[in-house]
């Protein structure tokens, strides 16, 4: 019963947030002073035909709220409007680009999960010893490498100097595609590995200092059991939370990495569309990223009570 209430409330929050985000994204256009037609046709020839087309396409002759409702209605039908630069439906353009970005983000996610968790756990279990210090220093360094810096360094070393990996393009076919994604996914993962490692380490250290861990030790449980059952298990919450936040960071940073490696994904499409003043595409991608972020965080929120029974109790009480 309480679980249903919890799920219902989280879904409610999700819908409200997405709705508010859609308002923000749509009405951001109103912040730009001057004629919306001129804004949408920046950098293009304002021929009478073009003006008529844009006015019709965006319903610029209608009031703003009416435009919003139409836009929202179209969204539900999977119609994200038309790209000004490609003269295609935005949906089509996005669908073409989606696989590359997905591959990049998934590959980076796997790297982050494996390396970040491993580094954090090893550091925490060796607190104050050489391994911990080495990992801490390494993570301070990694944490200071923004993805574009990582991209430049990786290209300089592994693509240009050593020539092991391609530096540009998405490749052909599945295997070649993955091969082209190796350097980009590493560049994308670097900062986030450091983030996950730090959170894992501090969350575990926090638990290691708790009295219940000492109690478990005093009862003759072997160290490995104490760590698994009482430290790692209890440390999961913060790690999960940061993973949720991290998804948005990954999606945005992928635009930088895709741009650096010339990958034809959603991220580079975003940059290209800003560059070519193609506002409908920008609008669609921003909203897409926000929706994914909110969705992932709702899932994280729903997982929390499974990990910590007190969360469920607190949520039920509210």
């Amino acid at each position: 019963m309480n679980i249903f209430k919890l799920v219902a409330r989280k879904l409610g929050t999700l819908l409200v947030t997405v709705f508010a985000a859609s308002l923000l994204v749509f009405f951001s256009r109103a912040l730009v002073p001057g004629d919306p037609v001129a804004f949408l046709l920046r950098g293009r020839k304002p021929s009478p035909e073009a003006i008529a087309e844009v006015t019709k396409q965006f319903g610029l002759d209608k009031p703003m709220w009416q435009q919003y409702i139409d836009w929202l209605g179209n969204l539900f039908h999977g119609d994200l409007g038309r790209s000004l630069q490609f003269r295609q439906d935005v949906t089509t353009v996005l669908a073409d680009r989606l696989p590359v970005t997905l591959g990049l983000v998934v590959l980076a996610g796997v790297l982050i999960a494996i390396l970040g968790l491993a580094a954090g756990i090893i550091a925490a279990l060796n607190r104050g010893r050489t391994a911990d210090r080495a990992i801490l220093i390494a993570m301070t360094g990694l944490g200071a490498i923004p993805s574009f810096v990582g991209a430049i360094v990786l290209i300089a070393v592994f693509a240009v100097q050593l020539g092991w990996f391609p530096s540009y393009g998405s490749g052909d076919g599945f295997a070649d595609g993955i091969f082209h994604l190796i350097l980009p996914s590493i560049a994308l993962a670097l900062t986030f590995v450091a983030l996950v490692a730090r959170v894992t380490r501090s969350s575990m250290l926090d638990q290691l200092e708790r009295e219940h861990v000492e109690v478990a030790t005093s009862r003759g449980l072997p160290r490995s059991r104490v760590v698994l059952r009482h430290v790692l298990r209890n440390a999961t919450g913060p790690i999960l939370t940061v993973s949720g936040v991290l998804v948005a960071g990954l999606l945005v940073a992928s635009s930088i990495v895709e741009q650096a490696f010339g990958l034809a994904g959603i991220g580079s499409l975003l940059v290209q569309s800003v560059d070519r003043l193609d506002f409908p595409v920008v609008q669609a991608i921003v909203l897409l990223i926000v929706i994914i972020f909110v969705l992932v965080n709702t899932i994280v929120d729903l997982l929390a009570p499974l990990i910590d029974p007190r969360v469920a109790a607190g949520a039920a009480a509210r």
Binding site: A21, L24, V25, V245, V252, F279, I289, V294
Partner: peptide, 20 residues
């Protein structure tokens, strides 16, 4: 704040460039 957290800083910056 919850709503704004859904917009990563860099994404908001890119949107701002697209607008202004």
């Amino acid at each position: 704040f919850d709503l704004l957290f859904a917009f990563p800083a860099l994404l908001l910056a890119i949107l701002a460039v697209a607008l202004f």
